[in-house]
Amino acid sequence: MEDLGHVDPAAIPILADELNLSKADVHGVVTFYHDFRQSAPGRTTVRICRAEACQSVGAAGLVEQAKNRLGVGLGETTPDGSVTLEQVFCLGNCAIGPSVQVGDRLYGRVGPQELDRLLEVTA
């Protein structure tokens, strides 16, 4: 499961041939893992942790705030292609949540202002 970002459906037969698997094998794998998107994500992916530890310190509010501000739902990309908003269950930063991951970069103790600032930068 190397980090492939997203898998274009057109690449499935090529991948299958490369790995000596069937197209179905590859399709099954690609659709199983959340990390394999079938369409390209936005330029930046913002993932808000919705797991219990972050819930206990206000993650739900952050999710609503991000949805409203970006005008997209979870798993969706803004029309300009700049940001994909996703939920994630646990980033391993449970003692100092709520946590948000922007690209590969992790942020802790993210309050509403901090989230606004993060979304500002990505936009």
Partner: peptide, 22 residues
């Protein structure tokens, strides 16, 4: 590296995943 699936923390599904499968 995993692919974003909590279940792969279960040992047998982790093995499946390590084998490149669902």
């Amino acid at each position: 590296v995993g692919g974003g699936a909590y279940i792969c923390g279960e040992e047998t599904s982790m093995l499946e995943s390590l084998e490149g499968k669902r």
